[in-house]
Design a protein around this nucleic acid. Structure first.
Lengths: 229, 229
DNA sequence: ATTTCTTAAAGTGTCGACACTTTTGTGGAA
DNA sequence: TTCCACAAAAGTGTCGACACTTTAAGAAAT
């Protein structure tokens, strides 16, 4: 039996402080609550969250590993600064990684998983039809779809890398750069082709389609950026 | 002015303790000095290295991020356990990532870098001729070659990922699984083709060749493993 | 008024201590 | 002898303190 009345907010039991802190900070950074490029003062941030500097420090080390903050010895840490160049680099990474993921998914996804993926896409389709669903589709839906294919690859290295490491940095870009687009209809169709290839157990085709899909997505981002100038 | 006589071993000045510790531990793990799968006791390891637990803890957090140790809350940390399955997964990753790296290298490497790469390969060739240079070529040379192509991609995300994160895990496999092979002659030739493609500024071909090269390398590992059973 | 030197404030690096959790080891009951 | 309970030991989680480094502010000199 342990004290449930005093400190522990019920449900956070046994989850180490550092971990909760890490999640909280990650969310705050991704959503821009702590602005990009801003300097982080350990004593202040620790105080705000009511933890010791040591605990915060360990959370920061993990944030650094995910490239959400940058630290320089004796100079302290700052939230990463997002840039167009980095975003393009990430798209190139994704093209390679998710391409491989799609290839493996075509080999390794179970029939059931494929069905679920299809029904997820059907939902997206409805939402697009209903509300010209730009908001939802871009922000959550697209991410969900890609997420599942990565899971379907059954390659743990790939899953770890894309879903734990890169995922949050990418989310940060979506949050803070806007990144809405008029491509939802187009993306929806590309997703459907992809499912077809996976369903047909055609790894080669699945990889090809995924790579094209991400390349289109990148071009769209490039176009949006040019507009802004 | 700072005390040069007492503590600082001259040359380690200003490099934080945690960082030096991190490097030392990483080396020890990669080379198997601390055996794979072994449990790590923070107090003991800290004592051995003459640092406080806090410093060691931060180094451990970074090791964890590189997948060299695994930590579970309240249960402590163990060195990662290498497995055939994981190795295959890593090869799949590399196929995707280094394939992309080769593609980009064909676009972005400077003429000078290409020349240097060629002369590096020439050295390798000589070594193979001389001493049937299996040892060197496998352990260092091959890694060097791939390393340079990744650098040549000029994609910082890719460079970071392959040369900082995955690199050491891969080195650990080389160290501890042996992974010598009779493929050095074959690999040498494949490397030469790759340079030709890069030199011809043919991204498509460079990617294709790199992927084939890594796939061959994987097949070789698979074969070596089957032998062992 | 501008620059530079000096000194105080803030911040980071590192440590040792204590509370709580898990593991280990020992003795008694079946 | 085997199994369980329970105390002791070891280990992890978290904190606060102190030393050294960097940054900021203010005084002195040009």
């Amino acid at each position: 039996m342990q004290n449930q009345s005093t400190a522990t907010p019920l449900g956070t039991a046994n989850i180490p402080l550092t971990e909760r802190l890490f999640d909280a900070l990650q969310r705050a950074i991704v959503e821009g609550e702590i602005p990009q490029g801003s300097k982080i003062s350990e004593p202040e941030l620790a105080r705000q969250h009511g933890v010791s500097r040591g605990s915060l420090r360990e959370a920061m080390a993990r944030l650094e590993a995910r490239k959400l903050v940058e630290r320089k010895p004796n100079l302290g840490a700052r939230v990463v600064t997002l840039s167009y160049e980095q975003l393009i680099e990430i798209f190139q990474l994704r093209e390679a990684l998710e391409g491989m993921a799609a290839r493996l998914a075509a080999q390794n996804m179970s029939e059931m998983e494929i069905e679920e993926l299809q029904s997820l896409l059907n939902q997206h389709g409805e939402q697009i039809a209903e509300q010209h669903g730009q908001a939802y589709f871009q922000k959550q839906g697209d991410l969900d779809f890609h997420y599942r294919i990565v899971q379907g690859s059954k390659n743990n290295q790939l899953i770890e890398l894309l879903c734990n490491d890169l995922y949050h940095l990418l989310r940060m870009y979506r949050y803070q750069f806007g990144m809405r687009s008029k491509r939802s209809q187009q993306a929806y169709e590309e997703h459907q082709y992809l499912i077809n290839a996976i369903s047909a157990r055609d790894p080669e085709m699945a990889e090809l389609l995924m790579r094209q899909h991400i390349r289109s997505s990148r071009r769209n981002v490039e176009a949006v950026f040019l507009e802004k100038l």
